[in-house]
Design a protein around this nucleic acid. Sequence first.
DNA 1: TGCATTTAGTTGACGTGTCAAGTAAAAAGC
DNA 2: GCTTTTTACTTGACACGTCAACTAAATGCA
Lengths: 163, 163
Amino acid sequence: MSEPGPRWLSADERAAWLALLSTTTLLPGALEAPLQQAAKLSLFDYNVLAMLSEAPTGALPMSELAARTSASLSRLSHVAKKLQARGLVKRAIHADDARVTSTTITGEGLALVGKIAPVHVESVRKLVFDRLDERDVADLARIGRKLMRGMDANHWILRTPAP
Amino acid sequence: MSEPGPRWLSADERAAWLALLSTTTLLPGALEAPLQQAAKLSLFDYNVLAMLSEAPTGALPMSELAARTSASLSRLSHVAKKLQARGLVKRAIHADDARVTSTTITGEGLALVGKIAPVHVESVRKLVFDRLDERDVADLARIGRKLMRGMDANHWILRTPAP
DNA sequence: TGCATTTAGTTGACGTGTCAAGTAAAAAGC
DNA sequence: GCTTTTTACTTGACACGTCAACTAAATGCA
């Protein structure tokens, strides 16, 4: 019985792979720079605040917030502590289940998101959507969701059906 | 609770954006786990060694290596120091230009890459290419290259013409 | 009821990435 | 030929992400 040899990448796959790898390497930093400059927020910080601001009550349990930001609970906990120190969120033990921490965006936090959301959307447009046509956008969503399925079949973004 | 901003994303764009953001967040960690387990190497470490091993002479200047790994010179310098301490690369001042540091992969480094390359290719396949059909691969390369053009028009991967 | 297990989150230590500052060599300007 | 600028890195400090260990509440189950 011989081991099957490594399934090396074809030339086309390699091209796609290099493009994907360099994109995942550079895109986060490129998106973060304007946020850092405008409000001393990391991309992840912004995302946490954005997810809270989009929640109907402005509050979410840590686990749910972690799911929506693709973060570990540990990472989120450190960041929530930092954001709380800046007065952008507050945390409280949930009434029905004392294990749950409910994180709420404050008025100050909402004001900050409101102020920098246009800045952020503008850089997302500039770096991503201004370069893509309608077909690209559909392809990107399709491929991105396929990849997510492989990494986390129950991920939050897959709860929403494909457009 | 979200504030409308200028040039806001459409529903389709938002779906693509969430898929892209979560992919860039989760993919690097997912690819790194097997490397970490097999050889205590980060994804970036591996990439540095892989790029050197693919160079005809097994050596590249720091700047070129930084370009091919999408890294800052600073980041690469720290990592090269670490890899040198592990005996996987060596560094030497270039003969023709004393400003240039030529980084060379050692025999030990080559042996390690040879050993774990199959492991890495397998996880790239499992996480990415096994989930994508031919059309997806072509779309991914096209979109990835478009995004790279926006972030760094002179990036290394764009030197190669599209397939 | 009592004890083990699971769930939810926090914490501290450690490694890594980033940024600002520094070094040294080469090229450009005059 | 002498100075200024640019290029090619290196370094140290700090911030962040991860991992392992921990706390505490809820649930399972016997």
